[in-house]
Amino acid sequence: MSSEENNKKTSGLTRREFIKDAGIVVGGASVASMALLSACKGDTKTVTQTVSTTVNKTVTKTVTVAEDGVELTDLHVILNGEPRVCHIEANWTLRDALKEGMGVISLKDMCNGCGACGSCSAIVNGRPILTCMALAVECDGAEIETAEHLGVINHPLVNAYAKNFCAQCGYCTPGFLITAKALLDKKPNPTDEDIIDALGGNICRCGTYPQHIIAIKEAAKGGK
């Protein structure tokens, strides 16, 4: 029995038939998809609303409401020193907005957005926060710093982290880095206990933990 016949015996379909059949589905899916996309971009109306945010207290904003009731609004932030804006929906987290809307890929997600890994950390108005646990609309007007920026300004932490092997697979490392930056901003000469406390919410699956203490103390001394 050929493998094609064998396949047919087990599933009642051959590879060729699947491709042919899938081709028909393709057409349908494409049409359906385009229709749905059109629906998503359907008629909208613009209203002016007063919105309370945790950052700028009360501000007046423009909210775009789609036919289906989905509210789209603009998120204005100072991201890594530059003013940025993107369209967000009311239920977006700050991580969604920065990653999907502004292309910040240093914000990772290890814990499926339940605030347990620290991989999505960013400094918001001077405080390290978990961006998966913050609503984007609440951060309108915020000053946000992500790990990418530390590379741009050549912060001593970056080289200290690189040379002390703080990154193995590297997935969680930006979250550690930005948390360490927030620590040094607050405590320029942290003790081991300070570092352990500050990084307590960050998980590294490669277990690089001992190296972060070395790197942060080295960066605190100006990278020496």
């Binding site: 240093s106 992500t146 990418e148 590379g151 080289n159 092997f165 590297g170 997935y171």
Partner: peptide, 21 residues
């Protein structure tokens, strides 16, 4: 000892592109 991995800085500052990115 003392050599820096060639991809270390990219990973550290988060510009390394993972499949999920």
């Amino acid at each position: 000892r003392g050599h820096i991995p060639p991809d270390a800085h990219t990973k550290v500052v988060g510009t390394a592109e993972f499949t999920s990115d």
